[in-house]
Design a protein around this nucleic acid. Structure first.
Lengths: 205, 205
DNA sequence: GTCTATACTACGATAGAC
DNA sequence: GTCTATCGTAGTATAGAC
């Protein structure tokens, strides 16, 4: 499938060097086809970029859908159910952040966060919003004492702890003295993230 | 000062569209000079890029030096001193993340985190390491019960909460329903960050 | 030190063969 | 559907005038 190969390569290149830095010639060549295939299948460089955003959103949503579904039912459950669901969801997000594939995804997404284009709307509608909504619903269930804006802020800050594992990967590795996040290091980070989140969620008002 | 203008423009362009996407012609023109000035002053595009990294490191270090100096002395102080110093330092980091200038800085730094080049070494030695070292020293003072790697992980995760305010700015704004982080929103976020950090640091072992 | 002029390469888009 | 060929533009680097 030429389209699939083009998308995979495009995400890598756009993530690595950005929209302006990536070249359609290079993307096509690395995908084993001619540059004009991009025009034919996606209408041009811009079309390929937007298709890449949709692809990333779908891939991330795929990895999080089971956790999101479980979390949504837990919103109606007990306080403990909701807490455990949020911890699980956050752990899932952290796991995605440590997937090798998410390196190119996150480079793409982070770029859009800083200079949002139409692609950001697609990413937001495709994954981000779904995760955010469940996050907020769970937090308001767990901490009904928090005003809405405080709950929103708490959700964002909780998410930041998972985010740093991907976005500051070079620093994380350097600080921990490893080249890559091996199994035991991942376990350590996820355990600390869980402990931190738990204590934030059970903070006495 | 032509060099200064070139650096300011370069950071903006490199941050916005990356090394490959930025054009020396454009940078020179926006700085009111000719492209060959870049060759003369920095030896070429690559030299300008490295100089931009040094410039960013120095600018960030500038903003954090007072807090870092105070924090270093607090490492020798009481448990409460150390806790307050860490909260202050983290608040300072969050404040930097909400500065308008840090938008271009962070775009540059985040890019280097994902695809480290020689510029990352300069950023790390220039700012990141200094902040990390003080973070870790304070945490080991506050939570001597934590094994070293747990303390390192805690420091990184704490930092992530400040990071998200800059790196996921588009999401932060969308979730909070604002276009920009106004004064009261910043206060809210910093207060929640402080509360979260305090409760992580005082977690009963 | 700062400019103009130029050499050379690579870019995205598109037309047309098959 | 996929290719090659080509057009116009823009990229970095460099040589040389002032």
């Amino acid at each position: 499938m030429v389209q699939h190969a083009l998308l995979e390569t495009a995400i890598d290149r756009f993530g690595r060097v950005g929209f302006e830095g990536a070249s359609t010639r290079d993307i096509a060549h690395a995908s084993g086809t001619a540059m004009s295939s991009i025009t034919y299948h996606f209408g041009g460089k811009q079309g390929l970029y937007l298709a890449a955003a949709d692809y990333i959103a779908a891939a991330m949503a795929d990895r999080l859908t089971p956790a999101l579904t479980m979390a949504r039912t837990a919103c109606e459950g007990t306080h403990e159910d909701a807490t455990e669901a949020l911890l699980q969801l956050l752990d899932n997000v952290a796991a995605v952040m440590m997937l090798p594939e998410s390196a190119t995804w996150s480079a793409f997404v982070v770029r859009e966060q800083q200079n949002p284009t139409e692609a950001f709307d697609r990413l937001y509608a495709g994954v981000i919003q779904r995760v955010v909504d469940v996050f907020i619903a769970l937090i308001t269930r767990i901490r009904p004492d928090l005003p809405r804006r405080e709950a929103l802020a708490t959700g964002l800050l909780l998410f930041g702890q998972a985010l740093v594992l991907r976005v500051c990967r070079a620093t994380v590795c350097r600080v921990l003295g490893t080249d890559t996040l091996d199994e035991s290091t991942q376990t350590l980070l996820r355990a600390r993230l869980r402990a931190n989140a738990l204590c934030i969620l059970s903070e006495t008002p």
